[in-house]
Write a protein that binds this DNA or RNA. Structure first.
Ligand code: MN
Ligand code: MN
Ligand code: ZN
Ligand code: ZN
Lengths: 136, 136
DNA sequence: AAGTTTATGCAACTGAGTTGCAAACTAATC
DNA sequence: GATTAGTTTGCAACTCAGTTGCATAAACTT
């Protein structure tokens, strides 16, 4: 898995076996997953190690986190070029039927005119509704 | 407190002593507060009663909830006319310095062009940064 | 190889949110 | 006013995501 390895080193993350496994799983996902989702993809695993792996990945901007209001933060891969600046961010969607959280990677978060003297560092925008698969 | 009383009955909430107290506290706040914030405004109180009070208020659209990513959901009063429809919603702001969460009641959530077949029921948009008071 | 740093695994804890149940209270009926 | 039925409140106990501490293991450094 030289590719996985590179993705890690490119983000200044030491490529351990554990981290490669986690990155591979994250790469496979079509939707954002939570820590406990991730835990269940292993037969035997330690929640804390996975927790710290996700923290490291997020810190190094390999993944981003989504607070979708379900009580469990979800994670999804960032694009190669992503620096998680406000301009880089996209809208997320939580489907009330299938309970899945998706990146709407093509929909940038619209810019907001904040009141004077407010400065901005980050935005979390989650739309809730029914996804196309569930809208038959 | 006939006014408080009316606000409750207008939303079809039976005006008990407890609920009037909670509504009064919520009315006083300049920022959104969490369940435990609310709990601390009482000398002696029961978290569960406050929890259920907030749930009732939210259900009846007297208040709305804000998931600001801090791990504790915040609550703030709705406007008299609010029905909590997507058009009624506004942006929220979380200050990374003072850790306060504000309603930016004057800033409506911009409308989003979702992919085909996605339907929308609700939006949570939280901007994080530094508020005007903290930006001296 | 010895020493140093970093990653992993296990146990134990925190804190938000939630449920069940019994007592208190309120409203409706007789 | 007493009886009943429905609603609200208070207490205990629980769930579950997230987190910390610490000991061991593995990876680099000299
Ligand atoms: Mn995303
Ligand atoms: Mn608000
Ligand atoms: Zn769906
Ligand atoms: Zn501030």
């Amino acid at each position: 898995m030289k590719d996985t390895d590179d993705k890690l080193t490119n983000r200044n993350i030491k490529p351990t076996a554990m981290r490669e496994l986690v990155l591979d799983i994250l790469t496979e996902q079509k939707m954002a997953i939570s820590l406990s989702d991730l835990e269940q993809k292993f037969h035997k695993s330690d929640k804390v190690t996975l927790y710290r792996t996700l923290k490291t990945f997020e810190e190094k901007k390999l993944i981003h986190s989504i607070d979708d209001g379900t009580g469990a933060v979800k994670y999804a891969l960032c694009k190669e070029s992503c620096q998680c600046h406000p301009e880089d961010l996209h809208v997320h969607f939580f489907c009330l039927k299938c309970q899945h959280t998706f990146c709407l990677s093509d929909i940038p978060i619209p810019s907001i005119n904040l009141p004077v003297n407010f400065s901005i560092e980050n935005i979390n925008m989650v739309v809730k509704g029914v996804c196309s698969s569930c809208n038959d």
